[in-house]
Write a protein that binds this DNA or RNA. Structure first.
Lengths: 185, 185, 185, 185
DNA sequence: GATGAATGAGGTTTCATTCAT
DNA sequence: GATGAATGAAACCTCATTCAT
């Protein structure tokens, strides 16, 4: 039942947009009574939150899986950066429709707890990674924060706005961008 | 009169948030009749758009002014990057309250036309800048797009989320980030 | 519930007139929430339409019943015309208050679909009737149309304007009027 | 100035319909300030009344002129009835657009004072006419009233609804209808 | 007289939420 | 637990009318 509701919520969100995301419409889509929604979710925003949490977890898992399969991280190898970025793009593309709604239509940060959780997780991984690399200057935590924020927006907007940049070119840019942090000759 | 309305709209937006941004409340704040709003704006969203356009123009002008006062752009000089980023941060901090509303509560891309205009303007400047610098590899347009998107999010989130990163440290990170594009030793 | 709403709508229409026929007032009269109106009617005009449809059907039924009870129609008998006209007058008088609102205050033809339906029904009956009678000259359909339009207005205005004409005198006039179509000596 | 306003009112009424007949729009059409309307008319309804009065007077005059030109009225001559009806149809057709608005969209009887004036005028003429004819039975005033009401609706609806009845056939019907009042055999 | 900016009451409609069954 | 009819606050917007200039 919860499944049906959450799935219906996702469908309505992607298909009709947030303006049309009404509890009644979700109930219709789920073939459930409006009252039933309130047996599992305290209010409308909890529904949105649940949809976002699941989607966020999926992205997180996909990126993690991709990283795990790529072998040991090697900061000296530019290919590492590439594959991380590639994994992220792929994960975002899985449900670009939902990505657009979340990024462009959802109001209020309170719905973005999931997003922050994802950012936090990646950030922590990255901080460890940066510490392990040969980079000594600066604060790894700060650096991780900057990179995550930078990559996040670039990746999302590339998927949503579809600028005239090929995927390969974008990955090249990511590599170059990350290069600024690597040890100089 | 238009001034009073727009200013009232800005106040309500920042003070009460977008959910409470109602035409009646704006009229109250402006000490004006609700009907008067509609003599100058076709509908509620036009009010929001106007507030955003003004704010966006102000940011744009401030950054441009800062760049103009910084002397000729010299890509070899790390200080150049620093001052650009610094100007952007300062401009965003001028009205952090409005920045939060715009970034976190405003729904629908249609309100983001101003944002896109700003991005475009900066991007074009940057493309010229990158062409002029010693960087030869890659597509300058693509590179400009990536940098703008990266910096945008990092700067905005730094102002809004106030992470434990000093302004100086952030500027250091920007410099390092941009360094990836500079000629290597 | 639908009954309560429709009845309240009728009461408001007759008592307060169309200008004061607001959804809130109907809801008040029905002791129902404004929102409840919209569970059964798509918009305000649908409410008016429903009231008119019911009233129109009632008139139609009353006239038909009267005709049915009058025995076989005999065009040679002037009494037939009389009884038809009499039935119509009686039906219109049942709710003269509503008749006035419908005829004098309701805007837009779209609310008059019911009226047209009634006209059509009577017209078809009349065409058959005229064909069956001894009248040979002219087009029965055209004749039926003319008679219906003529009688409609005369009957309605007699009820509404209450001219100094007795009911008996009016029926005499109808008889004379219809006489023009009868076979001449 | 009054001319411009009244003409503008007529144009707006016919072109846009009564729903869109707002004082502001009339002022726009007349290229006059809204405030100026209130120097010549007490309120919006007075504007409508003026338009109707003029139109009604024009119809009245046209019919009268037509009758005057037709020579002495001769009830024995069926051609007389024909020419009267013909004159009315022609007069109504002159501004069918306005006729439609008046008949189908104008709410409230108060706007129909002009209509009643026209009816009265024709009725009085007709009463005299009927008295002069050989018809002795019944009340001439009542008879005139009935005929006016009958003809009014038939003529108007023929112009507006454009039923499949030729003008000649309609005039034949009018003649037959009036025939009921004439002396038999 | 002419203007037109300003008014403000109030209308229609939506939709998150509740609660008796 | 499930229902779904009922709720009612409140939002956006219109437009006849006024009055200071």
């Amino acid at each position: 039942m919860v499944e049906r509701i959450v799935e219906a919520a996702r469908v309505v969100l992607v298909r009709d947009g947030y303006d049309s995301f009404t509890t009644n419409r979700v109930a219709d889509e789920a073939r459930v009574s409006p009252g039933s929604l309130y047996q599992y979710f305290p209010d409308k925003s909890a529904l949105v939150t649940e949809v976002m949490d699941r989607w966020s977890a999926e992205i997180s898992d996909r990126v993690a899986a991709s990283l795990a399969g790529a072998g040991p991280v090697d900061v000296q190898n530019p290919g590492t950066v590439r594959s991380i970025a590639d994994a992220l793009l792929t994960a975002l593309e899985v449900d670009a429709g939902l990505l657009r709604i979340v990024w462009e239509e959802l109001p209020a940060v309170r719905h973005r707890a999931a997003q922050h959780a994802l950012e936090l997780r990646v950030r922590e991984l990255l901080a460890v990674y940066l510490s392990a690399s040969g980079v000594t200057a600066g604060d790894p935590a700060a650096r991780a924060w900057v990179i995550v924020m930078a990559v996040e927006n670039v990746a999302v907007r590339w998927v949503l706005d579809q600028p005239r940049i090929t995927r390969e070119a974008l990955l090249d840019e990511f590599t170059a961008l990350a290069g600024g942090y690597g040890p100089r000759g």
